[in-house]
Nucleic acid binder design. Structure first.
Length: 198
DNA sequence: CCATTAATTTCAT
DNA sequence: ATGAAATTAATGG
């Protein structure tokens, strides 16, 4: 989701700068803001009982996060942590709801975004249930490519490290490396200087 | 350069 | 086939 920044400010949003590795919110906090990235990269993650990290999503410029939680009184089930120094706009949730009431077209657009998110979350879930590492990777790549304009094959560079891909798919980094190589051989992806194109 | 981080390989299970 | 540990490559200051 992307809302015009001036409009957000008009409704009382504030801009905040975060250093790399800072928590924007943490698991257990109550959602009180709509967040949108002006510039930077953040990850939404969770640590399981063994201390292993699972990344729900990695987001960058012009993308929002945590939006789904402002409509309920739920606690966040995950952390939001910056991966780079980032500028982020935040709008208190009641003001955000005012904004939506006065701008029904944005409200509709938000529904479209939720729809997109739910669709891919569901697909990711199905892929994660698969034993086949290739399926999990393809699912992830499709998801990231879905934000991309250009749908030509190999036109999309994946800006994720091997480790991040592993944490997003529940695979080990070695498995990711081995599977990517196999996929390159099968020509479903291209790799140039370790950069992945899909 | 040196230090840090990421990618890949090795090796044991 | 998989993952921990070791090695090698790249990135950044």
């Amino acid at each position: 989701m992307k809302i015009d920044e001036d409009l957000l400010f008009k409704f009382g949003a504030e801009k905040k700068n975060y250093k790399v590795k800072e928590h924007i919110f943490s698991e257990g906090d109550i959602a009180q803001y709509y967040f949108q990235i002006i510039k930077g990269v953040i990850k939404l993650n969770h640590y399981n009982d063994n201390g292993r990290e699972f990344i729900h999503n990695i987001l960058s410029d012009k993308q929002s996060f945590g939006d789904a939680f402002v409509f309920s009184e739920k606690h966040y089930p995950m952390n939001a942590i910056t991966l780079e120094n980032s500028e982020i706009i935040r709008l208190p949730k009641n003001r955000f709801i005012d904004l939506l009431k006065e701008n029904p077209e944005i409200s509709l657009e938000l529904n479209a975004c939720f729809s997109h998110q739910i669709y891919y979350k569901l697909k990711m879930m199905q892929n994660l249930a698969s034993q086949n590492p290739t399926d999990r990777l393809i699912g992830l790549l499709d998801y990231y490519k879905s934000f991309q304009e250009d749908c030509n094959s190999f036109s999309f560079q994946v800006h994720l490290t091997r480790q991040q891909i592993a944490d997003l798919t529940g695979l080990r980094v070695e498995t990711v490396i081995r599977t990517l190589k196999k996929m390159e051989k099968e020509e479903s992806i291209k790799i140039r200087n370790s950069k992945i194109f899909y």
